[in-house]
């Protein structure tokens, strides 16, 4: 695969959207091509920068429009006859019931076949490695989730390759939220404190940009989070002590 083939796929690769084979090809190319690797690194850095941009709130009129449409939908739903509402509840589940029934029937057939194979089935000469149940995806519940192995269509190597970026993105999101909260506390600060805060945030963001991708960058994000958390919670004390 040439550079021209790889570059249009870099965004999808960084998002973990490529299937296993394409992902593997892109990864293989990046290992050998300095130019494409640089493009991928630049794009990852650009994404980090974009995450730092302030969130844009939609205009109030947009939210009002959405609420109005939701309201219309609820009214229409309430006017439907009861039997249609019940059917609507069950209909989406029908394919799942059918699939479940098919799986259950297959399992019963396999069990029946295994129990009726007869004694002539040859015993293995050496003990075979026994099967075990595959683990469910590791998932932590809570407001912030770092999901691992949740997408079963993604190969383990692709998943691992994207992990550092996913964790870094969590830190980025958290920093944005804390920045907003520090903004609430900002009203209590003096002009000098505001300047000190802004200067320190710029400095910490510079450290994030300068840090290498992966754990060094995560460490730099954590420093920013620590400072912002202090500023949001402890306002003038945090500022006086540089966040510590």
């Amino acid at each position: 695969m040439s550079c021209d083939d790889v570059r249009p796929r870099l965004t999808a690769y960084l998002d973990g959207d490529l299937d296993a084979e394409r992902g593997s090809v892109v990864r293989g190319h990046l290992r050998t091509c300095d130019a494409c690797r640089q493009v991928a690194t630049d794009e990852a850095a650009l994404r980090d920068e974009l995450r730092l941009l302030p969130a844009v709130d939609p205009p109030p009129s947009m939210w009002a429009g959405i609420q109005a449409r939701l309201g219309e939908e609820e009214v229409a739903h309430a006017r439907r006859p009861a039997w249609r509402r019940a059917l609507a509840r069950w209909a989406p589940s029908a394919p799942r019931f059918a699939a479940g029934g098919l799986v259950a029937a297959t399992a019963i057939a396999v069990l029946w076949w295994r129990s009726h194979r007869g004694p002539e089935a040859p015993a293995p000469a050496t003990p075979e490695p026994a099967p075990i149940a595959a683990n469910p995806p590791n998932k932590v519940t809570g407001p912030t989730q770092v999901e691992v192995g949740g997408d079963v269509s993604v190969d383990v190597t692709v998943d691992l390759a994207g992990e550092a970026a996913r964790v870094t993105a969590h830190y980025g999101d958290e920093a944005e939220e804390l920045l907003a909260r520090a903004g609430e506390a900002r009203a209590l600060w003096t002009g000098e404190q505001k300047d000190a805060f802004d200067a320190h945030v710029v400095e910490l963001r510079g450290a994030i940009t300068a840090a290498a991708e992966g754990r060094p960058r995560q460490r730099a994000w954590r420093e920013l989070i620590r400072y912002l958390r202090g500023a949001a919670v402890r306002d003038e004390v945090a500022l006086a002590g540089g966040g510590q």
């Binding site: 299937d19 296993a20 084979e21 593997s24 090809v25 990864r27 293989g28 595959a134 683990n135 469910p136 995806p137 590791n138 691992v148 192995g149 949740g150 997408d151 079963v152 269509s153 993604v154 190969d155 383990v156 190597t157 692709v158 998943d159 691992l160």
Partner: peptide
């Protein structure tokens, strides 16, 4: 620890590798 990848391997999700 790591998992080898490549075209020669079939797709296995991370939830099944440990």
């Amino acid at each position: 620890t790591t998992a080898d990848g490549g075209k020669e391997f079939k797709n296995v999700s991370r939830a099944n590798m440990r």
